[in-house]
């Protein structure tokens, strides 16, 4: 069982990620970490893939982490978590340790791309951990290169804008569908702008026996080209334009957790971001139209999946 997060007052005063780390002002990733870890029990163990979060929070001899924390490589966070799970299980059977919640943080590069195999293996094996992908939609740590999580049309340093090409060609990989196809007990999207929703999802995920997954949009001031004070606003617009729908998949049943009945035009989300500025030139009008259509189709798909899976499996998990 889990408890819904209702208000700020019920959260612990503890700071799992200390101030003084070297993430950028307005960094979405650090807000993801705070919200996730404040919703989780204090005895959580953290595994971290290489990336912005890792390099900026643990520079020897300093560490911002008030949790046991492990990092070793870029592509292997889910495999490291598998080992932590196995180690704690073996030691607790011998009475030499207790099992603790294991929370993994990986960026979109470490999850969509280079870490996909390790993630898939760990999900399939059924280890008990919560994997949180903080998705800032490019390799921000190495300087804004495109990843499998970069959305259609976005400028990055490896999907540049010119007469021959206007930003990222093709659409963003559907990460949650890949995760759901592993038949995990719980997977969801979340946004730092909807913190109660995010934190409740963390608690729900950690109440499950087996691997669970949270895909959190983590706006990046440097890579998305907006002013640092607008991070939460960007996250909120992504939800309110249906660009990033908030939903969960529990026992195979899809459910939209924050229905957007009258969405704002997608331009309201795209326009404040420098990475999309070229889309508003007349020659790229068709690309903008493709994005609009993809956003509508995706939201409709999730609504439809909610109806269908509700009918199929609804009674079992209600």
């Amino acid at each position: 069982m889990y408890e819904q997060v209702k208000g700020l007052k019920e959260l612990p005063a503890d700071e799992p990620l200390s101030p003084g780390h070297r993430l950028c002002p307005g960094c979405g990733a650090s807000i993801v970490v705070r919200q996730v870890l404040l919703a989780a029990p204090k005895d959580a163990i953290v595994a971290n893939a290489t990336g912005c979060l890792e390099v900026s929070t643990a520079i020897y001899p300093y560490s911002a982490w008030n949790r046991p924390w492990a990092h070793s490589a870029f592509e292997n966070a889910a495999a490291v978590a598998s080992g932590i799970d196995a180690g704690l299980k073996a030691l607790s059977r011998r009475g030499e340790a207790r099992e603790h919640p294991i929370i993994v943080f990986g960026g979109d590069g470490g999850t969509y791309d280079i870490g996909m195999q390790a993630l898939s293996g760990a999900l399939e094996r059924g280890h008990r951990f919560l994997y949180v992908c903080y998705d800032n939609e490019a390799y921000m740590n190495t300087g804004i290169q495109r990843s499998g999580g970069t959305p259609r049309g976005a400028w990055t340093t490896t999907t540049q804008v010119g007469p021959a090409m206007a930003g990222k060609q093709g659409s963003k990989k559907d990460l949650l569908s890949i995760v759901v196809s592993h038949r995990v007990p719980y997977a969801a999207t979340a946004s730092i702008s909807h913190w109660r929703d995010l934190m409740t999802k963390v608690r729900k995920a950690l109440s499950k026996d087996g691997p669970t997954f949270l895909h959190v949009l983590a706006p990046c001031t440097r890579g998305w080209r907006y002013d640092p004070e607008k991070t939460i606003r960007m996250a909120r617009l992504a939800v309110e334009t249906r660009f990033f729908p908030l939903y969960e998949v529990e026992g195979g049943v899809y459910r939209v957790t924050f229905p957007v009945t009258s969405p704002k035009p997608v331009e309201e989300y795209l326009k404040p971001q420098g990475r999309y500025s070229h889309l508003f030139h007349p020659e790229n009008a068709s690309e903008l139209e493709t994005i609009r259509k993809e956003v509508d189709d995706n939201y409709a798909r999730i609504e439809k999946l909610s109806q269908l899976t509700g009918q199929l499996y609804g009674q079992k998990t209600a």
Partner: peptide, 13 residues
């Protein structure tokens, strides 16, 4: 790669 990565996690416990 994951074999040795899992060894890292397990050994750290």
């Amino acid at each position: 790669h994951s074999a040795l990565s899992a060894c890292v996690g397990a050994s750290l416990t």
